[in-house]
Write a protein that binds this DNA or RNA. Structure first.
Lengths: 144, 144
DNA sequence: AAGGTAAGCTACCAAAATGATAGGAATTTA
DNA sequence: TAAATTCCTATCATTTTGGTAGCTTACCTT
């Protein structure tokens, strides 16, 4: 079970937007350059973030993207689900009618536990937490 | 992030072996029929379990497969990793040298937390736990 | 009004992973 | 020796992933 680069890139991109929140829109090419991601690929990832409403766009010159809500208001679970889809999707978790077998239902409990463990982590953190850590890390670098 | 049918089928298969532990080998076709999985596909999944040492085979007539260790001795994490590969594999978790960017390192913490949350669940349960639940469920059905 | 700048949309594509299917070889029991 | 069973390898269709390309639309500046 590995993380797709969609999530890895997407998280880095939205974190750039979070760090820059309040300073006006950030352009794709800026993010792409900072994070070393293909311009056009990033465009598609950000389109996902926009479609889910996490991000808003401004077209034309001086345009770009910005968060629609303050970073402290965006849980990582929202970002994750936008990019990666439902966490540990097992059909029988949502549609138990697909689960006639007894043994299967036992494994189902395992997947349910896994799911809530993951969601626990992602629900407990916001973009602001990541911004803080980022700035803290940079400050430490200054001291050295 | 969805679970592959490899894991779903594989877990159900090894759980059959766990339930039957001590009663002699169980054949592929038996498991396949019970769990309604393609014979040939299941063969490959069990091959993975065998390759990892969780399961042993007996060839020829009256042959089949059995757990190499008692179910109480098999953590679900072992089964999962065998079938699904390393949990939440992000290269930079094992090889931090791939992680030059500062923002990336912050997201890295998120993946690390996710990983240990998942492992926490899978390390805390054994096949025996699932066997117990299965039998418990069956007993309840008898009462009705 | 015009030109340039950026987002938006859609199609396309290559490579890898997934979920199988198939057939024959090797081994063991009876 | 014959039958049963695992073992091994190849093949294959479909989906996902990761990415490229090109044209369209909106908007700001001059």
């Amino acid at each position: 079970m590995k993380l797709s680069s969609r999530s890895r890139y997407g998280f880095r991109a939205i974190l750039e937007l979070a760090v820059e929140y309040g300073n006006g829109p950030l352009q794709i090419k800026t993010i792409a350059k900072r994070e070393d991601i293909s311009n056009k690929y990033l465009e598609q990832l950000i389109a996902m973030l926009k479609a889910s409403g996490l991000v808003r766009s401004i077209r034309g010159p001086k345009g770009g993207y910005e968060l629609t809500r303050p970073p402290s208001d965006v849980k990582l679970s929202e970002v994750f689900i936008t990019l990666e889809g439902p966490v540990v999707a097992v059909e029988c978790l949502e549609h138990p009618e697909y689960c006639p077998r007894c043994t299967e239902c036992v494994t189902r409990d395992v997947w349910a536990k896994m799911q809530s463990a993951i969601m626990g982590v992602l629900e407990s953190m916001t973009l602001q937490n990541l911004v803080d850590k980022t700035k803290q890390g940079q400050a430490e670098n200054y001291q050295i």
